[in-house]
Amino acid sequence: MQIISLEGVSKIYPMPFGEVVALNNVSLTIEEGDFIAIMGPSGSGKSTLLNMVGSLDVPTEGKLYINGVDVGTLSDDELTDLRRDTIGFIFQQFNLIPLLTVRENVEYPYILKYRKRDTAGRCDELLKCMGLTENLSHHKPNELSGGQQQRVAIARALVNDPKILLCDEPTGNLDSKTGTQVMELLKNLNGKGKTIIMVTHDTQIAEYAKRTITIADGEIQ
């Protein structure tokens, strides 16, 4: 089943010195359960593509369907709901919320979705799956190591049970050992049916993916 499909998608940014074409007529379909690595030099348009797929951005031209929905027709609030319910984000910088504790970081998207605190123990269970101990969950994110923070971020991305995980250089700020651990976790999640789309520079990391897409000058090679 197709979970993401791009049909002739272009993204054009108007700039003072002229238009910048970040994506040029890109067509791509991603099946549910796929694991895709997107590679390419900086400025190639891979971040733009990731933002599109993450429904943070909408195409200037063409159609983009996420989980069967044409995102071009959605309002800002509907796009936000789509991100909250269907997509889990994993960033290079981990991007945990500094004001919240580890457990609250994981719980936050859950509260956004269900409008109540998690009393079923889902957050604790996820943290445990990520190999994080109970006593860590009351710490603030900046008291954790990089590898721990990234595992918290993965737990957060999973809390609303999204179909798609978007990873932007997930190992970019980790040493190779913890990077490998994180990639094993992602591979594991893909094995359980999550669709994973990952942007990376690292060819070794890209080998975890089932399929690699190379992008340059806004076009898929």
Binding site: T80, R84, L112, A157
Partner: peptide
């Protein structure tokens, strides 16, 4: 700003 970007990307609405 960065924190706002994070919470917006993981599903926080404008009015929230």
């Amino acid at each position: 700003i960065k924190e706002i970007g994070i919470i917006r990307s993981i599903g926080t609405k404008k009015n929230e």
